[in-house]
Design a protein around this nucleic acid. Structure first.
Length: 372
DNA sequence: GAGACGTGGAT
DNA sequence: TATCCAAGTCT
């Protein structure tokens, strides 16, 4: 310890051998998660099911652990193996994914399962390169699966690890320019034994100790290696480019209800925003203008009555949607959509923004009945 | 490389 | 209320 502190300047301040205290901390303080094999087992050579690792890693992309847990349980209950998922209907997968966001993940999940089932006999590739060739698996996920499920010495770098490393070395280079350097530092620090536990230890440290705000440096097992901590400026890292402000778009949405309570839905195009998900008919979402939204986009002529408005924020724009409601008196062809019954509606592949729209018109309509 | 791509929880 | 942001990937 004294040797480390005395011997170096900031640029090289952090030793690259912090893996031992980090792994010791992980052995004692690791999080227990449904998809994880605890360190006392991995040390005996017991590794988690690659299918479960893959599924969890894809769900966890830009998504919190708390949100993922329920979906992970639902998916593994419905599809316990990659072959089962490959054999499923994609509509069912989109329904099960509804609410989790970033729906291209669900589309790629299905494609990836089909590829693994048909071209790899249901067994995931065990190398980074092999994994990265699959849809929906990029640099991070390929490295994570290789390390965690196959104990390969892959340099795993996610947002947590970027934060830990930029603080450890007090890196003044902002993200994403700093990524290559971060990756090299992780590769240098990674122990050849326990690469999977090392990756998960780094992520647990970032998630529970080395947090974005108010990092708990007094509890950190490698605080003495940390240049940012020594300077008292841990919270300043990582440096990032300023964000752009998001525009607002505006539109109209039409909730058509039949006398039996069914609601008219249609399916969005297969790619792009909310691709492959269900929606109620609506207008184009235009840049906000002074004036009213387009009521001429209604699916059929009727006495459309205003039913409030909803506000929803996507990653790159905010949306204000004026909701209109009308009773559709007789049976008729739903055109390119379908009538969803009150029983079916809660289970449809409705993204959150569309659940908000329907709730504005018909309170409670999208909630699942508690009695099952 | 920059923009598209969701959502809900925390501060 | 406003802002940030969480185990990224694809184009």
């Amino acid at each position: 310890m004294a040797r480390r502190e005395a011997s170096v300047t900031d640029a090289q301040a952090s030793s690259t051998d912090f893996s031992s205290p980090l792994l010791a901390w992980y052995d004692r303080h690791h999080r227990s998660l449904p998809w994880r094999t605890p360190p006392d087992e991995t040390k005996l050579g017991v590794l988690p099911d690659p299918y479960r690792v893959w599924l969890s890693e894809v769900m966890l992309q830009q998504t919190t652990v708390g949100a993922v847990k329920r979906y992970f349980e639902a998916f593994t209950d419905a599809w316990p193996t990659v072959e089962a998922l490959a054999a499923s209907h994609s509509d069912e997968v989109m329904k099960a994914w509804a609410g989790l966001g970033y729906y291209s993940r669900a589309r790629n999940l299905k494609k990836c399962a089909e590829t693994v089932a048909s071209e790899y006999s249901g067994r995931f590739p065990d190398t980074e390169a092999g994994l990265k060739a699959l849809p929906g698996i990029g640099d991070y996920t390929a490295a994570a699966i290789a390390a965690i499920a196959f104990n390969r010495p892959a340099a795993v770098v996610d947002g947590n690890i970027e934060r830990v490393i930029t603080r450890l070395y007090a890196m003044e280079t902002p993200l994403p320019q700093a990524k290559p350097e971060i990756r090299a530092l992780v590769a240098k620090a990674m122990p050849q034994h326990r690469p999977g536990d090392f990756a998960q230890a780094m992520m647990d440290l970032g998630a529970t100790i080395c947090t974005p705000r108010k990092p708990a440096c007094v509890l950190c097992p490698i605080t003495e290696d940390c240049a940012a901590r020594r300077k008292g400026i841990a919270e300043r890292f990582p440096l990032k480019a300023p964000k752009k402000e998001k525009p607002t778009r505006i539109g109209a949405a039409f909730v058509a209800m039949r006398s039996d309570g069914s609601v008219l839905l249609r399916k969005r195009p297969a790619s792009g925003l909310l691709g492959g998900m269900a929606e109620v008919p609506g207008s184009h979402w235009t840049a906000r203008q002074d004036g009213v939204s387009d009521v001429t986009a209604a699916p059929f002529p009727a006495a459309w009555r205003p039913s409030g408005s909803i506000h929803h924020v996507f990653t790159h724009f905010a949306l204000e949607l004026f909701v209109f409601k009308a009773e559709f008196p007789r049976t008729a062809s739903p055109g390119d959509g379908w009538w969803s019954s009150p029983d079916a509606l809660p289970g449809e592949a409705l993204p959150t923004v569309m659940k908000k729209v329907i709730e504005a018109a018909i309170p409670g309509a999208t909630k699942k009945s508690r009695k099952g």
